[in-house]
Each structure stands twice: as C-alpha cells, then as structure tokens.
C-alpha cells in the first residue's frame, strides 16, 4: 500500500489519474514530475489528496485557456513545488522528531 493507494481510497486515486490523463501532453509531463518530487520529499499534507488534486484543478484551467504549462508554473518547477509545501513538514521531519534527536543532527 503505497501513498497512491491510500490517498482517499483507490477509487478516488483512479479518478484522479483519469483527470491527469485528460490533460494536454506538456501538462501531463510536468504534473508527473511534480508528483514524483512530492513522493520523494514526502510532505505530510500529501495524503489528504488536496495538494495533488488542487494542482490538477489549476492545470485544467490553464489548459482550457490554451496556455503552455511553463507559462503557468515558470521554468523553475521545483521552486513552484517548494512554495506549495512551504508550511508543511515532511515525513522525515516527523521521523526525526520521533527519534527525539535535535533537528539536523545525527542522534
């Protein structure tokens, strides 16, 4: 059971994937890379599903207006992502806290 399977249940996930597939190719590529990045970084607001579905909402609007994806998010896609999860700790942060170590220090 990866994060994929748990996000609001498999049914929701499949519906989400279908929406992504309906996006134009350039949007689909950027969405795929963003999702990969979030899975690695592991922000805790990821499993509530709204982070990813919000991005699809945003992308659908841009695609409907016929605009290229990089015009929307800019060339520094990573900066866009980091901005989105700025207020959210990552799973690694929580794991570290559970070990009782100081943040940023090996215990």
């Amino acid at each position: 059971m990866g994060i994929r399977d748990i996000i609001e249940g498999k049914k929701h996930w499949r519906a989400h994937v279908a929406r992504v597939k309906a996006l134009p190719p350039d949007y689909r590529i950027v969405y795929g890379e963003i999702q990969k990045y979030f899975f690695k970084v592991g922000p805790v607001n990821l499993p509530d599903g709204r982070l990813l579905s919000g991005i699809v909402d945003f992308f659908e609007e841009g695609a409907a207006a016929g605009r290229p994806v990089l015009e929307l998010v800019g060339h520094d896609v990573a900066a866009f992502c980091d901005d989105l999860i700025k207020d959210s700790p990552t799973y690694t942060d929580i794991y570290r806290a559970s070990l009782g170590g100081e943040p940023g220090k090996t215990s």
Binding site: E71, F80, L84, D87
Partner: peptide
C-alpha cells in the same frame, strides 16, 4: 509574476 506564484499565494 507568473500564475503559479499567484496560485501558491491563493492557496495559502
């Protein structure tokens, strides 16, 4: 200023 930046602000 790009739309992505505005989007993150609106979300916040």
């Amino acid at each position: 200023v790009i739309e992505g930046t505005v989007y993150t602000i609106l979300l916040r």
